[in-house]
Write a protein that binds this DNA or RNA. Structure first.
Lengths: 344, 344
DNA sequence: TTGTACGCGTTATCAC
DNA sequence: GTGATAACGCGTACAA
């Protein structure tokens, strides 16, 4: 059925422009894709037809034909967290450079949600996948990798997955934080950990214990508070710590939201930071931390850079089919001293 | 070419599972889509084949066939802004409910970028598009609408576009903020506006002027500072205001980033909030504002709710083909008084 | 209940 | 330089 006039709500196809321009289908395809082997005259006719029809190439058909989706998908823990947003931002920047689409999902730390999203990404034939994982979908991730989908894990390291990883040097960040406190004379350090139900929560928990041992810091189980990555939990943990018969003289928070909760708890109590207790945070140093009071000493992370780096790796793998060895990129943390930590 | 064994890196198609299961292509398709008219025996065989092959339906092909993409696309101004991310979060929540994908792009207030993204969305055959626009791509947006793509504009109102809109009652928010200050005795109110190069920046600027007139507040052009939506600009504007021979006694910031810049400028100067000047912010009241000091009085916005609502509208339009009238959903702002405003 | 065949909108390989 | 034509992977009438 030839149609030179489009019906209501009909969307033009390549056939329509071919018909209108009076050329063949292949010719239209060529001018769309900038193939030089089309005479100027015909090329012009095609362009006019495209314009008058308001034709827009159907990526879906293109993708089916060319067997790629021109989209890279990213699975975050929680879009709403500034750290995670920065990750997404970095990824988006380079995706755009390559004229790629960006698909975003978030897990909210739920394994089923993560599985669903990963399966969605697979069905969509995402050209690349960037994952900030709960750490409990190893099988699924490995199966994606086996299908030759470039996967880059970010922020949270999960062992046993054969793929690229980009993140902060978190062990080093912990060390810097603890050393800073130790140098100020603090020995009794409370830790506001993350969620032990996530792999990386447990992993970082172990990391802290290790570093504390290494630095010769005394160990007291009660000084380690764990729980979900929520504002409320941050407050609860802080209150519990300060309610101890012998409270810590310093506290380390491993995450922005937890730390915010702790600060709020302090502000709403008699506890003064840093008068009664010092506080250190490991997180991205974005401008919001300039205006919280007291100014929080932090060991900085680099989510924006991580995002960019991860995306770049995806595109490298997409370009060069040659199997390069899996990379492990770690960005070095920096200590930013503000008012929340002081000498004991 | 029949192949019952997949080559390295090959990905199974519906044909492969049909071959392995010894059934026809159509049968496989049916079990995938949950069609009941398949005998249990064959259905089982197919499922086994799917499992052993690790088959995953190709959404691209499905989408081509069914003429929908199962993705809704969202165009934000800046992924990094918490307000905007809350929008995305709300949208994502309902997209997930419907088993839809979410594609995200950001303009960074650049018109060309917005056009590119919108064209990408069109080529992708996005089932629905949610836009927080610079306001300068009206033609493009209208052309999308003419092609029967459900479009919802969020946050920033742009007149003359026949589509649904969801946002805050910003005029009312301005009024609440100004009335609050006026009630405290403030007449000389400085305004830190947004970017006059964006449509909504100019729009809101006009809105403020109108409300000030309505409330009988004196008009002084020098009290209105405009510029890009950046932290630096917020600081600059604040400093300029406070450097006036007769500085304002109160300041209204129309955006979180600008406000943060202003607070930082104050903290780094002799100017005390609220001692020397009161400060009000119009924005989402997320937890970070609990811990900035001084506590900032704000008129709240509801980006999360806006996002959810916008997405729901998209799906309504997707379901019911019947042309319902375009909706205009406004969420009412609330005044949250903190320490940054005080009686003159 | 099951299988066949066609078409979705493209790209790519051919002959011409 | 140009135009048929066969795929790409799938859904779905239709026939069997």
């Amino acid at each position: 059925m030839k149609r030179f006039i489009l019906g209501e709500g009909m969307v033009a196809t390549i056939k329509d422009v071919a018909g209108l321009a009076g050329v063949s289908l292949g010719t239209v395809s060529k001018v769309i894709n900038g193939d030089q082997s089309v005479s100027d005259k015909r090329s012009e006719r095609v362009k006019v037809a495209i314009a008058t029809l308001g034709y827009s190439p159907n990526s879906i058909a293109q993708n089916l034909r060319t067997a790629n989706s021109k989209t890279i998908s990213v699975l975050l823990a929680n879009i709403t967290n500034p750290f995670q947003m920065a990750l997404a931002k970095g990824i988006e920047e380079v995706a755009v450079e390559h004229n790629y689409n960006l698909a975003v999902s978030s897990t909210n730390e739920r394994v089923e949600k993560e599985l669903d999203s990963l399966e969605m990404f697979e069905r969509n034939r995402s050209d690349g996948i960037i994952i900030c994982s709960t750490g409990k979908t190893k099988e699924k991730i490995c199966s994606l990798i086996e299908k030759n989908i470039p996967v880059v894990m970010v922020d949270r390291f999960v062992p046993g997955i054969p793929c690229d990883y980009v993140g902060d040097n978190f062990p080093r960040a912990i060390e810097i934080a603890l050393q800073h406190l130790q140098a100020l004379g603090h020995n009794r350090i409370g830790i506001i950990h993350g969620d032990m139900n996530t792999y990386h929560g447990a992993y970082r928990h172990g990391l802290v214990l290790k570093k504390m041992r290494k630095l010769g810091l005394p160990h007291d189980t009660n000084l380690h508070k764990t729980g979900p990555y929520t504002y409320e939990q941050g407050g609860n943990a802080f209150r519990e710590l300060m309610a101890m018969s012998v409270p810590p003289t310093a506290v380390l928070a491993v995450n922005n939201v937890l730390c915010a909760g702790a600060i709020n708890a302090a502000n709403n109590s008699e506890v003064n930071i840093p008068g009664d207790v010092s506080l250190v945070l490991i997180n991205e140093n974005n401008f919001m931390w300039d205006i919280v009071s007291p100014g929080i000493t932090m060991v900085t992370q680099s989510p924006l850079t991580i995002g960019r780096s991860a995306a770049n790796i995806i595109f490298e793998r997409l370009r060069g089919k040659e199997k390069m060895a899996f990379t492990n990129t770690l960005f070095e943390p920096t200590l930013v001293v503000r008012e929340s930590t002081r000498i004991l």
